[in-house]
């Protein structure tokens, strides 16, 4: 039984692509057969974050237009043989693909993969519509900032209107020191406002920058962000994992734990 998950946010720069790369790699580490699809036509990035940019021959638009077979365009990951990437086209625009074409493509891929993960472009235009067309569930990525949360709220409304079965929230780039000082909204605050299930919180971790530089997702390593992403992967597969202690403060940990129980 395969699941199609769209990773979306509305606002750009909150960590959709990083999340897609890490969640995809993490699920592959848990022995799932995973394909990542970059649906950001014209601004492709998932390939560089995955470190696979030098292997691209065909892309999503080629597949959709029938210039090549699906198998020819899939790029096997360098570390996990059960992880694949379908890159986006860099030289085309969003209108090169339609929601119907995406649905058809995803239906074909369902047979071969446990998880199909779609990296959605920022915005709510055609690219967004393409990305959510064939999705079963969505993971909404936001940061604890007013602009990102406002956009996330808009996205949630649009996804509800499109009758997605399930929506989960990742609060990304949390800085516990700022939350403690009261200068950043807490996970509680964000969940309170957006009122959807929290599937994980990821701290603002400089290791993310390093891993992106190297083109190797950090999920599963010893960094806080690496652990947080792996926990998210466990939760995606349905396992219950307590929320990670992102700060040293025990009170906050208790708060997080109780928060997760609530949902």
């Amino acid at each position: 039984m395969s699941e199609v998950i769209v990773i979306t946010s509305g606002k750009g720069g909150v960590g959709k692509t990083t999340t897609t790369a890490n969640v995809g790699t993490g699920l592959a580490m848990l022995n799932k057969k995973v394909i990542l699809i970059d649906t950001d036509i014209g601004l492709r990035n998932l390939d560089v974050v995955m470190g696979l940019e030098n292997r691209i021959v065909y892309n999503l638009v080629d597949v959709v237009e029938g210039s090549c077979r699906i198998k020819q365009a899939l790029i096997k990951d360098k570390r996990y043989p059960n992880l694949y990437l379908l890159p986006s086209a860099q030289t085309r625009d969003k209108t090169s693909v339609s929601p119907e074409q995406m649905k058809k493509l995803i239906e074909e891929l369902r047979e071969d993969f446990d998880y199909i993960i779609l990296d959605c472009p920022a915005g709510i235009e055609q690219g967004f519509k393409n990305a959510i067309a064939g999705a079963d569930r969505a993971i909404i990525v936001t940061t604890p900032e007013v602009s990102a949360i406002r956009d996330a709220d808009r996205i949630i409304g649009l996804l509800e209107a499109n009758e997605l079965k399930r929506m989960d929230l990742i609060v990304n780039r949390l800085r516990m020191d700022m939350v403690k000082r009261g200068d950043m909204m807490s996970i509680d605050d964000v969940v309170d406002i957006l009122a959807i299930n929290l599937i994980g919180a990821v701290p603002d971790d400089e290791n993310i920058v390093i891993s992106t530089n190297q083109g190797e997702p950090l999920v599963g390593n010893d960094s806080l962000a690496g652990k947080a992403f792996l926990n998210i992967c466990y939760r995606i597969t349905g396992e219950e994992v307590p929320l990670l202690n992102l700060g040293e403060n025990n009170n906050i940990w208790n708060k997080l734990a109780s928060l997760f129980k609530k949902n």
Binding site: G51, N54, R55
Partner: peptide, 8 residues
């Protein structure tokens, strides 16, 4: 066809 090495 040739591609660059995977190591930076």
């Amino acid at each position: 066809m040739a591609r660059s090495s995977d190591k930076p």
